[in-house]
Amino acid sequence: MSGAEDRQSILDAIRSALHPKGDDTARKQAVRERLTSHPSNLVPRRGKASGDARLKLFIETLEGQSAKVSRAKSANDIPDIVAAYLRESNLPAEFRTGSDELFDRIPWDKTPALTRHQGRGQGSDAVTMSRARSAAAETGTLFLTSGEENPTTLNFLPDTHIMIISKQDILGSYEDAWNALRDIYGARTLPRAVNLVSGPSRTADIEQIIVMGAHGPRRLHVIIVG
């Protein structure tokens, strides 16, 4: 069978199983409506937390998932936090980022020991840094979007991943986070990859014992700005 015939045979089989003698108008209407209005299902109460309660939930959940969380009053404080973290963790004082305008606003020269490289992730990267677009406090999850600003490979290749998120981008639920992305990218449109990250890489495939750093970063350090 050709591709078109294969396609038709599967669709025909579904139709004959679902509605042997059917008028499709109502079904089509239901599908169109659901896709355009994308109604929300039940959002757990914890996803509706606001203000300090939301921030606390986000930090505690993320820490519970083995990430390190720091606070920066403003972008100006980031270089010192990063330098201190890399020193304490015995890591080289260099890292790679994408072209996000946030990284240009950070006064890296304040801490001369730090070296910032730019571009997509390399197999040899020890430390990378990305900016998360939004976050959902309900499960301590950060949303990262692909593109030149924050290449996807930076999220998975290094040993240590540092993520920067503005306090105002931390939202309550997954629904809120997706709506924030809809505002940026438009209806029914997503960037090539959206990575939801909730901690460092791990595996429990050997005797159900959790080990960090299976294939992705062994360490995740989230810096909240604001």
Binding site: T61, Q65, G98, G119, R120, G121, T139, G140, T141, S146, G147, E148, P151, T152, T153, L190, P191, R192, A193, V194, N195, L196, V197, S198, G199, P200, S201, R202, A204, G216
Partner: peptide, 24 residues
């Protein structure tokens, strides 16, 4: 499944690399 609140990575992928993308 594992009893986690959520898995560590949930990835939403839409199509191939876009013209401006450095990877994918």
């Amino acid at each position: 499944a594992t009893g986690q609140e959520c898995s560590t990575y949930t990835t939403f992928t839409t199509g191939p690399k876009r013209p401006e993308d450095p990877d994918g």
